[in-house]
Every structure is written in C-alpha cells, then in structure tokens.
Simulated scan of single mutants.
Amino acid sequence: MMILVAGPYRSGTGDDPAKLAANVHAMNAAALELFDAGHLPVTGEALALPLIELAGSSRVGDGPFDRIFHPIAERLLERCDAVLRIGGPSAGADAMVEQARAQGKSVFTDLAGIPAA
C-alpha cells in the first residue's frame, strides 16, 4: 500500500526549528518501518518543505508556506491507499484522517495494525 504518514508538524512546537525537525524525524522513522514492511510510505513534509523553500518562504506559517503545506498533503492523500496517524495533537493530521475516511481509505493508528505487504 501507499501510506501517508500523518503526524504533528507545528503543533506544540512554537515553530522552534529543533522541535519541527523532531516531528519530521518521527514521521520519517514511521515511514522507514512501513518501507521495511514492504509498503510505499510518503509524508507531505517530504514533498512540501523543499517546494516551500523554493517558493521563497522565510518562516513557518508565511504566505508561501500556507499556499503549499496543507494543500500538497491533501493532493497526495488522494493517491494514497491509507493513512498512518502518529504522534500527539495536530489539526492538520486529524484533517488528513477525516479526508481519508471520507474517501473510504484505511486509517491506522498503530504500525502493528497494518497488514504486511
């Protein structure tokens, strides 16, 4: 399955770069486990962050950031089979879960619950 890993990016970080990086690391660690289980993991951050930088963003939450960050995850989810929701509170990750359910996709909250590829 192609699985979107959705978790907090900004929530609870105060936009502290080290905390943002830790959240990306947590999503990437989950993605690696999915990959090792035979799935194709994706994160919106992996696609969005380089584009946001190229678009001229100077800080998290500015115009270029807002134009790209959530919309790219929404477009990506349309092509995924499922979502793995990780981490703590996150309005954005919860929106991805709601969108996945509305599209009839599987939603997982635990790596152990994902069937082997």
Score class of each variant (00 low, 15 high):
5 V>E: 07
5 V>W: 04
7 G>S: 05
7 G>F: 03
8 P>D: 00
9 Y>A: 13
12 G>V: 10
15 D>H: 03
16 D>R: 10
16 D>S: 08
16 D>F: 14
16 D>A: 06
17 P>Y: 05
17 P>A: 02
18 A>T: 12
18 A>Q: 10
19 K>C: 11
20 L>R: 01
20 L>H: 07
21 A>I: 13
21 A>G: 02
23 N>I: 00
23 N>C: 03
26 A>H: 12
27 M>T: 10
28 N>R: 07
28 N>I: 09
28 N>K: 12
30 A>Y: 14
31 A>G: 13
31 A>I: 09
31 A>Q: 02
33 E>F: 04
33 E>V: 15
36 D>F: 02
36 D>Q: 14
37 A>H: 03
37 A>V: 06
38 G>H: 01
38 G>K: 01
38 G>W: 00
39 H>W: 06
39 H>C: 08
40 L>K: 10
44 G>H: 09
45 E>H: 09
45 E>F: 03
45 E>R: 00
47 L>F: 04
49 L>R: 00
49 L>A: 07
50 P>L: 06
51 L>D: 07
51 L>I: 07
52 I>Y: 11
52 I>G: 12
53 E>Q: 09
54 L>P: 01
56 G>E: 09
56 G>N: 04
57 S>L: 09
57 S>C: 08
57 S>K: 04
57 S>M: 06
58 S>I: 15
59 R>K: 15
59 R>V: 13
59 R>Q: 15
59 R>A: 15
60 V>A: 14
60 V>Y: 01
62 D>F: 02
63 G>S: 11
63 G>N: 11
65 F>T: 05
65 F>P: 01
66 D>N: 12
67 R>F: 13
67 R>W: 04
69 F>Q: 04
69 F>P: 00
69 F>A: 14
69 F>E: 05
70 H>V: 12
71 P>T: 12
72 I>Y: 02
72 I>S: 05
72 I>W: 00
74 E>H: 13
76 L>Y: 03
78 E>C: 02
78 E>W: 00
79 R>K: 15
79 R>F: 10
79 R>P: 03
79 R>T: 14
79 R>N: 08
81 D>G: 15
81 D>P: 13
82 A>V: 12
83 V>C: 12
84 L>W: 00
85 R>C: 13
85 R>Y: 08
86 I>K: 05
86 I>C: 08
87 G>A: 06
88 G>F: 06
89 P>F: 13
89 P>R: 07
90 S>D: 08
91 A>M: 08
91 A>P: 05
92 G>S: 05
94 D>W: 14
94 D>Q: 14
94 D>G: 13
95 A>V: 04
96 M>Q: 14
96 M>Y: 14
97 V>R: 09
97 V>C: 08
97 V>M: 04
97 V>P: 03
99 Q>A: 15
99 Q>M: 15
99 Q>Y: 10
100 A>T: 09
101 R>S: 10
101 R>K: 15
103 Q>L: 07
103 Q>A: 15
104 G>R: 01
104 G>D: 02
105 K>Q: 07
107 V>N: 01
107 V>K: 01
107 V>S: 05
109 T>Y: 12
110 D>I: 12
111 L>N: 01
111 L>C: 08
112 A>L: 06
112 A>S: 04
114 I>K: 01
114 I>F: 13
114 I>M: 04
114 I>A: 08
115 P>V: 03
115 P>M: 05
115 P>K: 02
116 A>M: 07
